[in-house]
Design a protein around this nucleic acid. Structure first.
Lengths: 95, 95
DNA sequence: GAGGTATTTAGAAAATATTCTAAATACTCC
DNA sequence: GGAGTATTTAGAATATTTTCTAAATACCTC
């Protein structure tokens, strides 16, 4: 995992929207695609980018591939941003 | 400000390094450039990207332009990531 | 205001990212 | 194993990003 890869993955609006959809729970590639005006191939490309950035992982079930959020990388992002912002650790509240 | 712009700005390693340099305090464009093997024009380009993302702001003094971190946008990023990650607000600790 | 330093802008080349169509793979269920 | 659905991969077209060189602007000092 690299921050560059993660931030790049987060820089695309479609990919951010995918992550927000996944916030509610796992979805198949097809389900995700139905929210966008893009071909399945393009959705698959975006999912690959998110997967390579470790922002999502997949699990196979029946004839579907379900995607879900990987929150551990989000933690790392928070930590990096927080360290840059402030000071020494990842506290957000207080100061 | 848009998240896309901010994440895109953060996706480049040189730009992240610039931000880390600025963490210690304001620096002129030339000072920043001296840390990189790039032309001044390229540094200027990266500073423009960071400025447009509101991650830095500039102040002019004598013949120099000093750049410094703008932490308020970092707050917003933290909030967005945190909301995606978790739950309801920006708390990092505890859970 | 002329000369000097700092920085940005313009324009072009090269690299990377995004999207599509068409074809391939993967897996299920009969 | 064959038909059918879900998803990915390949390859190409277009758009965007990154970098450079050369020139322009901005500002200071004398």
């Amino acid at each position: 995992m690299s921050f560059g890869e993660t931030f790049k993955a987060l820089s695309d609006p479609a990919r951010r929207q995918i992550l927000e959809l996944l916030k509610k729970g796992p979805l198949s590639a097809g389900d995700i695609g139905s929210h966008f005006d893009m071909t399945g191939a393009t959705i698959s490309y975006h999912l690959k980018v998110l997967k390579q950035a470790d922002l999502v992982f997949e699990s196979r079930e029946k004839n579907y591939i379900y995607y879900q959020l990987n929150t551990s990388v989000l933690e790392e992002i928070m930590l990096w941003v927080s360290t840059l912002k402030g000071g020494t650790n990842a506290n957000v509240e207080g100061e």
